[in-house]
Amino acid sequence: MTSSAADRKITALRGDGIALAEAADEFLSTHRVANPNTHRAYASAIDRTIAAIGGRDRLLADVTDAEISKALTALWGGCAPATWNRNRAAVASWLSWCSSKKRWAAPSVPAEAERRRENVDHTKAVARTKLERLLSRRDIPLRDKTLYRMLYETAARAAEILSLDVEDLDLDNRKAPVRSKGGDVEWVYWDAGTARLLPRLLRLPDGHCDGVVRTRGPLFLANRKPVPARRPGPEHICPHTGRPRLGYDRVRVLMEAHLGLDPHQLRHSAATHLGEAKVPLQLIMAKTRHKNPRTAMRYTRPGGEAVAEITAVLAPPRRTH
């Protein structure tokens, strides 16, 4: 082998000619991000980071650790610890795969962009009476009201419900299949509140043949059609309206504005309310699809209303005259 041929082989092995876009595409095609929800979240974080460090055509080997830190800070430095950690982990997983699995020259997430502490908040569950009042508000748009009610009644993760398509729904039996964190297909179930709202949500909006019902495509849609540069795959576009699937980040913003809550609080509240109703832990685990009892018990911590109610047991006996 000539010296120049050997040099080219070493260059290829090091990934000196690998562009950021190519490195990202290869990583996103691996089994570790096969779950659609994980794939969507990782792709969003990685694409935004690539845009912040010079664009898709820049070479991976030219990017420095300091640039990765600067990009993460600019994109998510002011966000909540959970948001920072989630996006940081996606980028770190990608870069680690490039350097360890492919042996490419790649930057890493430096120490100054370390994972942030997420404080455990035992007040996340919302009292049932307050939550019912919030979910019944008439000033919340139909799409958002249906989503919030469905998240609570299914006790599902927001990403799972947002990934549902219209054809997934079994309206008669009030259930639908979702793909869990581990990739398994599981069922979520809803009750009367969601069942009343879904038929209204599936009617096409004004200007789209009134009276026609959507039969295919994403269940929850964004308000506007996507711009060409950010157009998602056809599986994320409604064939009736041309609008894309509603995204998690947008839901988080809207729910904060409508309810003052985080999407996960609805799942947490549902588990807590089931526990307060003395539903056995095994059934709560079946509902929330937790595999570990210790994890499920963390979500079923009794709320303030339940603690206040049992406190009456400690009151002094009433005097009788």
Rank of each mutant, 00 (worst) to 15 (best):
L202M: 10
V166I: 14
H240T: 03
H208I: 02
V253M: 12
A286Y: 04
L261N: 02
L201E: 04
P205G: 11
V212H: 14
V185Q: 08
L204R: 15
G260Q: 08
L147M: 09
A176M: 08
A156H: 05
L274V: 05
A159I: 07
Y152S: 11
W187Y: 08
P177T: 04
K278F: 11
G193I: 04
R243A: 02
L151A: 07
A159E: 14
N173Q: 13
R196M: 10
T215V: 10
G207D: 11
P263I: 04
L246G: 00
L259K: 01
N173I: 01
L261Q: 09
I284Y: 09
V185D: 05
L259A: 14
A257K: 15
R149I: 15
V251S: 03
G247P: 00
R216A: 10
R179V: 15
D262V: 13
L201P: 02
L201K: 07
R149G: 11
T272K: 08
P244N: 03
H240K: 09
E160K: 01
K145P: 00
P218Y: 03
D191F: 13
D184V: 09
D262M: 12
F220P: 02
P244D: 06
R200H: 10
G193H: 09
R250C: 01
G183H: 09
P280Y: 03
H264K: 11
L246C: 01
N223G: 15
A229M: 04
V188M: 07
G275K: 02
P244C: 07
E235R: 12
E186Q: 14
A192W: 01
T146E: 01
R174P: 06
K225V: 11
L162E: 06
P199Y: 01
L147C: 03
T154M: 05
L219T: 06
R149Y: 00
H236V: 00
L219W: 10
P263F: 04
P263S: 02
L221D: 03
G217R: 07
L169S: 04
R230E: 12
R231D: 00
R231M: 08
H264L: 05
Y148H: 03
V251Q: 04
R203I: 07
L219M: 08
D206A: 14
Y189H: 14
H240F: 06
N223M: 01
L246Q: 01
V253G: 07
P232F: 12
R149K: 11
F220R: 05
P177C: 04
T215F: 00
P244T: 06
A257Y: 02
W190Y: 05
L197S: 10
R179H: 03
S269H: 03
L219P: 04
P280G: 08
A195P: 06
K278H: 14
L261I: 12
L221V: 12
G207L: 12
G193A: 09
C238E: 00
V185R: 10
